[in-house]
Nucleic acid binder design. Structure first.
Lengths: 225, 225
DNA sequence: GTCTATATTGTGATAGAC
DNA sequence: GTCTATCACAATATAGAC
């Protein structure tokens, strides 16, 4: 009388004991899906087990507690989102090309995973420390060193343009936040925007497709002297 | 052996039976604080009762269920955030002044309530319908009518500028999303940004103070032809 | 209206057979 | 490694005295 549905999902039915090589991985995938859908606090271990096609007890066998599983999922999610963008921002690519690169990278990625930003931001709101522990692991350098690297490169590139008279002065922190805001916000606010603008999923995708072309000129235009 | 702390908080101790006029209101305030801090799913009725200085049972007396209480809080929060901005966006104020007005309105408001955007976005992610029911109530007109009103005004104002050669063409939807993104994102992503940029609370406030001056030129600059 | 006490269910976690 | 069964307690909700 509890859950009438079979433990295994339709398309992914597996014979009991038929290790597909990695049960742990399947659990992590399922947890990822459920945590993103329900939020960490709203997620249930039972739902994750169902989605993974295994028993609840197995989640504890592999991850011990719900919190550890949540940490693992957050780490995975953060690794999908941060390293590529941070690397692009900190690279030696000329500033204008860098902006284009970040915009394309972000919109491509977030189009495929629209719920990632909302999850990351929400999770970080309730566990502000989860990221600081992680950045060194992802980038291979201490946190403050990563910051210094990123912002000295940017500051230098901006200074160059300002001296050449091709760009208005802007603090690198504001530069980064503005760029990320324009890329990420539409996804983080997706449900709100869809309600406000009267969009369905297809409208939203088209809206993003348009941004893909218009965002770079918009952003660079804002910095013209 | 459960919770060692008294039901009533230190500074707000009230005598039992001493109606301060409105217990229901005190509960709503407490619920607002707790829901914003923990998220709806993570919030506990006990914590809300403690914060309100009343018994758990009273929450059910006034609001019947946790979900109804959550709805009430969301409605309150949304009313603090949306009507003023939507009114400003839909007004007849010239476009440039309107941008300045929205930026000031948003940054002022969100500086005082930094956690509001995160809460609203997260809540909307898990209950996408909560807003559509609400907009008509807040604005006094049907949802699609509100949308039409907002976007026809904006489209008209933008067209005017484009014809005068003082502004690049942009879809009103992109206009609004860009403006909101630049205002709201820093608050929604506050914990992430503070970690990335190495900010403490004071740094963050200063960062926002700077945006207050720079955001309007940035945004309008992006629209120059 | 407000409280205490209790019912009832949900949920993370463990024990132990296979 | 995977399952079934169960524990222990947390959390929402209700009953009923005052």
């Amino acid at each position: 009388m509890v859950k009438p549905n079979d433990q295994r999902q339709a398309g992914t039915a597996r014979l009991p004991g038929a290790h597909d090589g990695d049960t742990e991985h399947r659990i992590l995938e399922a947890a990822h899906a459920v945590f993103l859908r329900r939020g960490t606090a709203g997620a249930r271990m039972q739902e994750i087990a169902d989605e993974a096609g295994v028993n609840k007890a197995l989640l504890h066998y592999y991850f011990r507690t719900k919190d550890r599983l949540a940490q693992a999922v957050f780490q995975r999610a953060a690794q999908q989102l941060f390293p590529s963008v941070l690397a692009a921002l900190a690279s030696d690519t000329p500033l204008e090309a860098k902006v284009a690169q970040v915009v394309q990278l972000e919109l491509d990625h977030l189009t495929r995973r629209p719920y990632l930003p909302g999850y990351i931001l929400s999770e970080l709101h309730h566990h502000p420390d989860r990221l600081t522990q992680l950045i060194p692991l992802m980038l291979g350098v201490p946190l403050d060193e990563a910051r210094r690297g990123l912002f000295t490169v940017l500051r230098h590139q901006i200074d160059e343009r300002v001296r050449a008279g091709t760009m208005r002065r802007i603090a690198p922190e504001q530069f980064v936040v503005n760029l990320l805001a324009l890329c990420v916000f539409p996804f983080a606010a997706r449900p709100m925007l869809m309600a406000m603008l009267g969009f369905d999923a297809a409208d939203f995708e088209q809206f993003i497709a348009r941004r893909r072309k218009e965002l770079v000129p918009f952003f660079l235009g804002a910095l013209r002297p």
